[in-house]
Nucleic acid binder design. Sequence first.
DNA 1: AATAGTTGTTGTTTTATTACTAAAAATTAG
DNA 2: CTAATTTTTAGTAATAAAACAACAACTATT
Lengths: 282, 282
Amino acid sequence: MLSTVADKLKKNTFRKSEAKVATAILNDPEAAIKSSIANLAKNADVSEPTVNRFCTNLGCKGFPDFKLQLAQSLASGTPYVGSNVTLQDSTEEFTSKIFDAAAATITRTRKNMDIPLLEQAIDSLAQAKKIEIYGLGASGSVAQDAQHKFFRLNIPVIAHVDELIQRMSAAATQIGDVVILISNTGRTISIVKTAEIAHTTGATVIGITTPDSPLAKHCHLLLAIETEDDTDMYTPTTSRLAHLVLIDVLATGVAIKRGPRFAEHLQKIKTSLTQTRYPKAL
Amino acid sequence: MLSTVADKLKKNTFRKSEAKVATAILNDPEAAIKSSIANLAKNADVSEPTVNRFCTNLGCKGFPDFKLQLAQSLASGTPYVGSNVTLQDSTEEFTSKIFDAAAATITRTRKNMDIPLLEQAIDSLAQAKKIEIYGLGASGSVAQDAQHKFFRLNIPVIAHVDELIQRMSAAATQIGDVVILISNTGRTISIVKTAEIAHTTGATVIGITTPDSPLAKHCHLLLAIETEDDTDMYTPTTSRLAHLVLIDVLATGVAIKRGPRFAEHLQKIKTSLTQTRYPKAL
DNA sequence: AATAGTTGTTGTTTTATTACTAAAAATTAG
DNA sequence: CTAATTTTTAGTAATAAAACAACAACTATT
């Protein structure tokens, strides 16, 4: 895991005057990326070369390079402001926090994507005789969204949100089928059991869940989505957004793999819907 | 609408030599943020002051400021390249594009949020005797996700994804009830008809849909989500992500409005789930 | 007291910016 | 339609600012 400049700033393995620099930067990072070396040196009450040495010690090529890297780590993610919603928040505040959290989740998930693994998953989905998608609770609607996505690709697919039906259906899978299991925690007993059942039939088991979870251990292909710790009950869980985007990626990958002959199928689906809609205004 | 430096780079309202600068930067943005003004000027085959003027014309304070801003928009994954997925895309490419589009949608939606309107919606939801949520197709799973969210808040809520049941249920609503209609296009005839029915009963009709659409005209409260034009059939629709986050905001708002007495209810729900899960590893 | 480790001072080099000038394009008058 | 004038645009050269390197001084530790 490559650590950002912002992360390094928080370690306190600094010498006296470099610590001053670090705290000065942490005090107002936004200001730091805009100020010159002289300015920052004055603020931190150290000499200019100290600031420069500080930067090189952090692994940067110099002060400008440091500013650039800091700017980038600030831009991605918002690691500085705690984004937990509180009872005291104004509408504007909690709205911002929720949108922030959502965007951050997307960005974070993107960074952690394992492309070769994705390709494997897409391969097996593209060749699947049948795709079964299981989820419970909030992951249930994710499963249904996934069904909708793959259905449009003209692939035999079914989502189940009922524990018993999931088990029965899983038991009925065969070699060549793919079972996608969606679980935020990866610790839902019933889903894990279902994964075990699917394993016995020889179906390919794909998990969209937290790494190192019980479910993760029962998957042929683990598409890991890191969960933020559910510290605050007022903060909605954003991981299902990551799940949805991941499914978009899978479905798109399959669509591309199937190539241009699918274009006409998708067109068919589109025209089939036109009768259900009011025409677009000009 | 605040646009990033990266956005501005794509507009071609440049003069001859500044266009050279823009293309040079777009050719290799990563390199641009690292090079000096002299270097970039040579690459673009223009003089150094031209590069500088280019930066100030873009609204930056100077070249260093420009580099900083560009670095930030690159880091936050802004799609500075056209984000339509093509058949030729590598897995890495279309994955990036999809995640980019998702993040961009979230950010864009956030900017367009109308806070007072949100507050009105939250108010009516918090006071609702009953909440009904309707969606079809992809919006169906959004509706079910919404049901799940409000259900956790101990509010009488039901989602329907069947056109006929939606109509019947809408006809049975009363004053004090709230009907949430979710539609990406806002042009699904059946949903619009259902909105009309709900209107006659005196229920509050909230629409989560495209502004200026037929559905939008039949809502008491319109929570507008701008849709990106569905230009490419391989590009998944990201608007449902916006819908989901918006629902998060609504549910959170209601939770906050109901105050601390809800904390215990949420706690109850949590403990009710523990028996269904494997314990967390230490 | 000596030495290794840190920090500050001075000066050089690189980088960015400003002011000015030349060229090109556009506009208007003849 | 052409020529003259104005306006816009780009480049040159000079200036200012910033970053960096080499060296000197200081501190703490043994």
